[in-house]
Amino acid sequence: MELLMALMIGVLTGCGVYLVLRQRTFPVVLGLTLLGYAVNLFLFSMGRLTLDAPAVIGAGEHYADPLPQALVLTAIVIGFATIAFMLVLALRALGDLGNDHVDGRSVGSDGEQEDQQR
């Protein structure tokens, strides 16, 4: 299970970083979302991975560390809010700048950048 978790976090982070470095805003938003998922899994695994253990002390013989679960919950809420803001901002930038390039420059069909036509 450790290997699976590590691989998933690694793949999610890698995809997230790749997408964040793209030049259009929508892939960047997706990348930030993926990074957020990776972070949440990572925080979760930092409380050590346990099977069949409730996050309540005294409920059974073993218990899982409850703190990372609380942290993940907070991180999910904050991440959701910021991604929502980011989407609205991307839409506004699309309206204000006339295109969805992160630098506000229009992108040709072959990927070449041209200076913005005013």
Binding site: L32, L35, I78, A90, L97, G104
Partner: peptide, 18 residues
Amino acid sequence: DRARAGLHYVILNLTGSA
């Protein structure tokens, strides 16, 4: 200008938060 600067600022800081 504000939209462009804001976009960079937000993306950078969200990555920073991660």
